[in-house]
């Protein structure tokens, strides 16, 4: 019975894959008008890289909600993990080689994050990439025993975690004065996007690190 069910699922999956591929292959040439629209508006977008322009200007509202999604994941982890009263783990044992490596790498990683943030305006890079590098540095520090896991973030840390979203949101609402949410005046677009990206780099770096460090702090049953 169970193997018959599995067989049915496999067959269905094969049919789905086949029809999807056939449907894709029968499509006529692409009829994309948006790349031209993006190119036409690059001059007033405030940045030089089209992907960054879409992410933070043309479809910046998606990004605003996405930052909320990340913070929400951290909250969900807090809700699930925190409710249990499990023993806390003081952090990993410090391996001297790893610790030395982490001390060496951390400043370099922070520098790299700063570069990625700056580069995002005109080439691939930006706040998310920079934040991922920062979070990587935090995880490395934790694994080498130089940064404790987070049990319940204090006010300062919470401010850092939510700050990016709050600044983004305040700007979005403030720009209602221009007639719509997130409607940057072209002459200030570049500066405002940089402000958002800089605050997002810090907050997202903390959130991404938190996704790891909140879990690390609670070793279930240990």
């Amino acid at each position: 019975m169970k193997s018959a069910l599995r067989l049915a699922v496999v067959l269905l999956a094969l049919v789905l894959a086949g029809t999807l591929m056939a449907a894709i292959l029968e499509l006529p040439g692409a009829n994309q008008s948006l790349p031209a629209a993006v190119a036409a508006h690059m001059a007033v977008s405030g940045v030089e890289h089209p992907v960054t322009a879409v992410l933070l200007n043309f479809r910046g509202y998606d990004t605003l909600l996405e930052v909320a999604v990340l913070l929400l994941a951290l909250l969900g982890i807090g809700a699930a993990v925190h409710a249990g009263s499990e023993t806390e783990d003081g952090g990993a044992e410090g391996d001297p080689v790893l610790a030395a490596l982490a001390r060496l790498l951390t400043p370099l990683l922070i520098l790299a994050a700063g570069y990625l943030l700056w580069a995002g305006a005109h080439r691939p890079g930006g706040a998310f990439q920079a934040a991922a590098v920062l979070a990587g540095a935090a995880v490395l520090l934790h694994l080498s025993g130089q940064m404790p896991a987070w049990s319940s973030p204090g006010l300062l840390l919470r401010l850092g975690l939510a700050g990016g979203l709050l600044i983004f949101l305040a700007l979005a609402a403030g720009l209602l004065g221009q007639g719509a949410l997130l409607r940057y005046p072209p002459e200030y677009a570049g500066a405002l996007i940089l402000l958002i990206e800089a605050s997002l780099t810090i907050s997202l770096g903390l959130i991404l690190a938190g996704l790891f460090l909140m879990l690390a702090g609670r070793r279930g049953g240990a």
Partner: peptide
């Protein structure tokens, strides 16, 4: 080259990371 889906995918990846972590 179409930057719009590229940006959408970046958004999607971040959402997937968040969901996976949870």
């Amino acid at each position: 080259v179409d930057p719009v889906p590229q940006a959408m995918v970046l958004t999607g990846i971040v959402v997937a990371v968040a969901a996976t972590a949870l």
